[in-house]
Design a protein around this nucleic acid. Structure first.
Length: 274
DNA sequence: CGATTATCCTGTGCGC
DNA sequence: TGCGCACAGGATAATC
């Protein structure tokens, strides 16, 4: 579900509601969510003040007053939700953080792919060292370097490189297609592109993601993604191609195409994108 | 070595 | 209406 725009929306919500507050109690209900280390280690955060938040790609980072970090990833179905103490637990609630004044921060995740872990390795946490630059900081030069590295003879699709978190962090299946539409290139074209096109892709990446954040992310028909208070985003209303196969292209009116590669769907306009 | 496929899970929507 | 199957925002390990 959540890609950079959704994680950033939640990060801003979390920062606004809980920053400066003291964490009184942590309760882990679903230990699978805290699988990188012993779930009991989360109790070390009790008594600390949340001093700030950051984000790298799709990872959310909460910084605490002793210098450590709580790192979270929502994967496919994770949500961070505000609740008042005593509110009934919604199903698939795996962790509850009780703050002194702001109420509770709950981690809810039906598919349990999401995770939480504590890191004491520095800033940014060493566990995130494999990530490329955050997509909002993507420079034309960085993307050009990586795309030029793709050999022309190799058939790696452009979209596979755009969604490779080691190249650039934060782009997932939805926004890769939207970025390719904005840049007027097919997501399944070979990733070996020249500097001019790489530069256009970098610009469209920042542009599409900024607009998506402004719209508070994309909530699809299943309503899985929502913000801290359960509200949906609205960027899906602006999607040019994602999940719009067969529907008229907003630019030229011809039907949007869909194909599978890898194991997921790609959407594009065969007329507008080359 | 690089490119597919399987895996971790639950929920939903569709076709029969 | 009910059942079974395909598929879903991700990341990583295993396998070809």
């Amino acid at each position: 579900m959540p890609e950079l725009a959704e994680v950033e929306t939640v990060r801003r919500d979390v920062d606004r509601v809980y920053s400066g507050d003291i964490l009184r109690h942590v309760r882990v209900i679903g230990p699978r969510t805290v699988r990188r280390h012993s779930p009991a280690l989360l109790a070390d955060l009790e008594g600390l003040t949340l001093t700030g938040t950051s984000r790298l790609g799709k990872y959310l980072v909460l910084r605490w007053s002793d210098g450590c970090h709580l790192v979270g990833h929502l994967r496919m179905s994770g949500q961070l939700r505000w609740a008042a103490p005593g509110d009934p637990l919604q199903v698939h609630t795996h962790a509850v953080f009780s703050f002194a004044r702001a109420g509770e921060l709950r981690f809810v995740d039906p598919r349990t792919f999401g995770e939480l872990f504590v890191s004491r390795t520095g800033e940014p946490p060493e566990e995130l060292a494999h990530l490329g630059p955050d997509a909002l900081d993507l420079s034309a030069a960085h993307l050009a370097r990586h795309l030029a590295r793709q050999l022309a003879g190799r058939r790696t699709p452009l979209k596979v490189v755009l969604t490779d978190q080691r190249v650039v962090a934060g782009i997932g299946n939805i926004y890769a297609d939207e970025i390719c539409f904005a840049a007027r290139v097919r997501p399944d074209r070979p990733a070996s592109v020249g500097r001019v096109l790489a530069s256009r892709l970098a610009g469209c990446t920042v542009d599409v993601l900024s607009r998506a954040i402004e719209a508070r992310g994309s909530t699809l028909a299943d309503g899985q993604y929502c913000d801290l208070t359960g509200q949906p985003g609205s960027f899906q209303l602006q999607h040019a191609v994602y999940n719009r196969d067969g529907k008229p292209c907003r630019s030229c009116g011809r039907p949007v195409a869909r194909a599978r590669f890898g194991s997921r769907s790609a959407y594009w306009c065969p007329s507008c994108q080359r």
